Amino acid sequence: MKILKIFYYLFFICIAVIIVLLIASAFPIPGNYKVMIVQSGSMEPTIKTGAVVVVKPRVEYKVGDIVTFNQEGSSKKTVTHRIVEMREKDGAVAFVTKGDANNGTDQREIKKQEILGKMLFDVPYVGYAIAAAKTPYGFMALIVFPALIIIFDEIKKIRDEIRKSKQKKFESERFDPVEIEPERKEFVRREPEKYARKTKII
């Protein structure tokens, strides 16, 4: 039973984490933090495919920083790569980026204003669950499954309480005290074999 309870609580902790990250990936977070899902293996083994990365804008970026920026021609798709070189371009700094697993650098250089933030940390594989939760069926599963578990758990608790109540009632009726000497107010229990009532416990 203890093992089942541990799994029970771990399951709901995981659900809570997924919900928090799902909300964080869809809405702005105080402090200008952003939550992104890594959808490719270009940064492996540093960042696994399906990981969630938390990024925050910095005043300055340097070589070695892992940064997230918008993919060229898209404001919704992002890339998380490492800065490997800094160059002067038109009086401004341009950053050359590269995925740790890629053989060559990215084709285009990025400007500072294109960077969404520097990666602070990542959570492996959670991105798969968040991506699934963003689909209609995944979102329903995220709500329905925990709700069903809670309902079944409450039904089980109610059933156990009913059984305990019936058991106590049976025991009290089986061993009712009988007054044998009124002047002394002394009581004895009836003999169970002789006076036991036929009661079925459910």
Rank of each mutant, 00 (worst) to 15 (best):
V54Q: 03
V54I: 15
V55T: 14
K56C: 09
R58T: 12
R58Q: 15
E60G: 01
Y61D: 03
G64F: 11
D65W: 06
V67A: 02
V67Y: 01
F69C: 01
F69M: 03
Q71I: 10
E72N: 11
S74E: 07
S75F: 10
K76L: 12
K76N: 13
T78W: 02
T78V: 13
V79K: 01
V79P: 00
T80F: 09
T80S: 10
T80R: 08
H81A: 04
R82N: 05
I83Q: 03
V84A: 04
V84D: 01
M86L: 13
M86K: 13
M86P: 00
K89A: 05
K89M: 11
K89G: 01
D90S: 08
V96N: 01
V96P: 00
T97F: 02
K98E: 03
D100E: 14
A101K: 14
A101E: 09
N102F: 04
N103K: 14
G104P: 00
T105S: 12
T105G: 01
D106Y: 04
Q107V: 09
Q107S: 13
R108P: 00
R108Y: 08
I110V: 10
E114P: 00
E114D: 07
I115Y: 02
I115S: 00
I115E: 00
G117V: 07
K118W: 07
M119T: 12
M119Y: 07
L120M: 15
L120F: 11
L120A: 06
F121R: 09
F121P: 02
V123H: 04
V123C: 02
Y125N: 06
Y125T: 05
Y125M: 08
V126G: 02
Y128L: 06
A129D: 01
I130R: 00
A131T: 12
A131S: 13
A132D: 10
A132V: 12
K134Q: 09
T135F: 04
T135E: 02
T135S: 09
P136C: 03
G138I: 10
F139R: 09
I143Q: 10
V144M: 10
V144L: 15
F145H: 06
P146R: 09
A147K: 11
A147V: 14
I149G: 04
I150C: 09
I150F: 15
F152S: 10
D153G: 13
K156Q: 10
K156W: 11
K156L: 11
K156Y: 14
K157V: 13
K157F: 11
I158D: 05
D160V: 07
D160N: 15
S165G: 08
K166W: 06
K166F: 07
K166Y: 08
Q167P: 01
Q167T: 14
K168W: 06
K169H: 13
F170Y: 15
E171S: 08
S172I: 15
